[in-house]
Computed example of a mutant assay.
Amino acid sequence: MTIKTIEELFIHELSDIYSAEKQLTKSLPRMARASTAPELKEAFTSHLEETQGQVERIDQIVELLDIRLKRIKCAAMEGLVEEGKEVIDTVEAGPLRDAALIGGGNKVEHYEIASYGTLAAMAKQLGYKDAVPLLLETLAEEKAADEKLTMLSERLSTQAKAEKAA
């Protein structure tokens, strides 16, 4: 089906990020198990809870706007999840794998930041006043998760350098 209106585009994009979030709820536990740094395990585990809340927020938006999501699979998230599996399969457990998992997590967050920013802008344009704060709340969470991963990466690399020098 061809998308012809901004309303149709909004529903398509919301459906896409819903699929992405659902895929992420399956991937985050795997990433947590594959992490060796306790702080990284905790970051992935706590983001899983946050992601479940984000799925619930999308459900709220669907109910508020009385819309139906399309049954689509987010190809972008599918690729990012596949990259994560590849890291787990090809990089030995330890600081290097943790660094690669953090990089993959940042990629995911950047995709989600772009998606929720776009959705919030479209919701404003469409006058979906009740949906905007929900989308902005999720956008803020995604930005915070990205920042947390970046700070964790810096802290872990500093620790690894200190251990190597000792």
Rank of each mutant, 00 (worst) to 15 (best):
V91L: 00
G94S: 08
V62M: 02
L69H: 12
Y116F: 14
G94M: 06
K164R: 13
A140W: 03
T5F: 02
E137V: 05
A162T: 12
Y18T: 12
I11P: 07
A37E: 15
G117M: 09
L9Y: 00
L65S: 10
Q54Y: 02
M77F: 04
K4A: 13
K73D: 03
D146I: 03
T45K: 15
L24D: 07
I67M: 12
E142S: 09
E112K: 01
T51S: 11
E141W: 01
E78G: 15
V108E: 04
Q52D: 03
H47N: 15
A34P: 12
P133I: 03
E92Q: 15
E50K: 04
E86P: 01
D66R: 13
E82H: 05
E137M: 07
Y116R: 01
K85C: 01
E8G: 05
L65F: 05
D16M: 05
L149F: 14
L65N: 09
T51Y: 09
E63A: 15
R71P: 11
L139Q: 10
V81E: 00
K124V: 06
D98A: 08
G105K: 05
D59I: 07
V81P: 03
A114T: 14
L48F: 07
E7Y: 13
S27R: 02
I102K: 08
G117V: 10
M77D: 01
E83F: 03
S157W: 14
I58K: 06
H47E: 06
E142I: 00
K124G: 04
A32K: 13
E163M: 15
A144H: 15
A93F: 08
A123W: 00
G117H: 01
